[in-house]
Design a protein around this nucleic acid. Structure first.
Length: 270
DNA sequence: CGCTAGTCCTGTCTGC
DNA sequence: TGCAGACAGGACTAGC
């Protein structure tokens, strides 16, 4: 099971750079309920050039020449990928198609439909409540200490809170906490500055590694060409319940935190 | 405001 | 072999 997190969306973003400058020729909304917001008529995108493909948190953002934005969130099982016109494709759970000139298309497929598409005019407003990008220069141990001060909830919950840090999901949260040697149920405010420095570094390391490996594929994730990623082979704790810790041999445990499974090594993490 | 529990959804896995 | 139930969880909402 997978949800596309920051490294997965970043991978799709990188793949899709080649459509920059291409013209949108048509679009096909096959399921209305995956459209979450419509600041403008989607038809306005037709005949427009894709001017930019960006990422903010777990959102992919396509900009067009007339200052319109198409935002995509993959939810848990969403796929957003390029396909050459002549190739056949599985159209089950296919909710949206963007046709590009010449003869290519981008498909949005999402069996579980936790994902969606937003037609947004002002991205600044849309992303107003989104937290800091963890790979930006402003993301520092000091920032972490500041935003986690006085928070009694678990550090795991804080890492998953998109309004504090953008883009971290269950897999990279567990991996970062393992790499930092911190138990996921520790209250955020209880972390020492030394621990916060370790966590800050671990977050950046696992995310960078995830991007380098072009994402994690447990079952569902596919990149902008519908290919699998490689980070699943480097997971230390996520999905390794009852298996020995690579570092110390202790059995990896799982507990529920905030309704989500949290994987940890009780010897390597305090 | 901070936090928890419930909700949505369907493919896959488990146990009888 | 078949089938019911558990499970996966991102983001949002209601309620305390």
């Amino acid at each position: 099971m997978i949800m596309p997190e920051l490294p997965e969306v970043e991978t799709i973003k990188n793949n899709l750079q080649e459509i920059k400058g291409k013209k949108i020729t048509a679009l096909n909304i096959r399921r209305q309920d995956i459209i979450k917001q419509k600041d403008f008529d989607p038809e306005e995108l037709i005949d427009q050039e894709v001017t930019n493909i960006d990422r903010r948190g777990k959102y992919l953002c396509l900009a067009t020449g007339n200052h319109c934005h198409l935002l995509v969130h993959m939810g848990m099982t969403g796929r957003f990928f390029l396909l050459d016109q002549e190739l056949s494709y599985e159209d089950k759970h296919l909710h949206f198609v963007l046709h590009l000139d010449p003869g290519r298309k981008i498909l949005f497929q999402d069996p579980r439909r936790f994902g969606g598409i937003w037609f947004v005019r002002e991205t600044a407003t849309f992303f107003q409540t989104m937290g800091m990008e963890p790979l930006s220069p402003d993301f520092s141990p000091e920032y972490c200490l500041k935003v986690m001060a006085r928070r009694k909830t678990s550090i795991k919950n804080i890492l998953l809170n998109q309004s504090i840090i953008a883009g971290i999901g269950n897999i990279y949260a567990d991996e970062a906490l393992y790499a930092a040697g911190i138990m996921p149920d520790r209250p955020g405010a209880g972390l020492s500055s030394r621990e916060m420095a370790r966590l800050h570094r671990a977050i950046q390391e696992v995310l960078r590694k995830g991007i380098e490996e072009k994402g994690t594929t447990v079952r569902d994730f596919r990149d902008g060409y519908n290919r699998s990623g490689g980070f699943q082979n480097q997971l230390q704790v996520y999905g390794r319940k009852n298996q020995p810790c690579f570092r110390c041999g202790q059995t990896i445990g799982v507990t529920k935190i905030g309704g989500r499974s949290s994987h940890y090594c009780s010897r390597c993490q305090q």
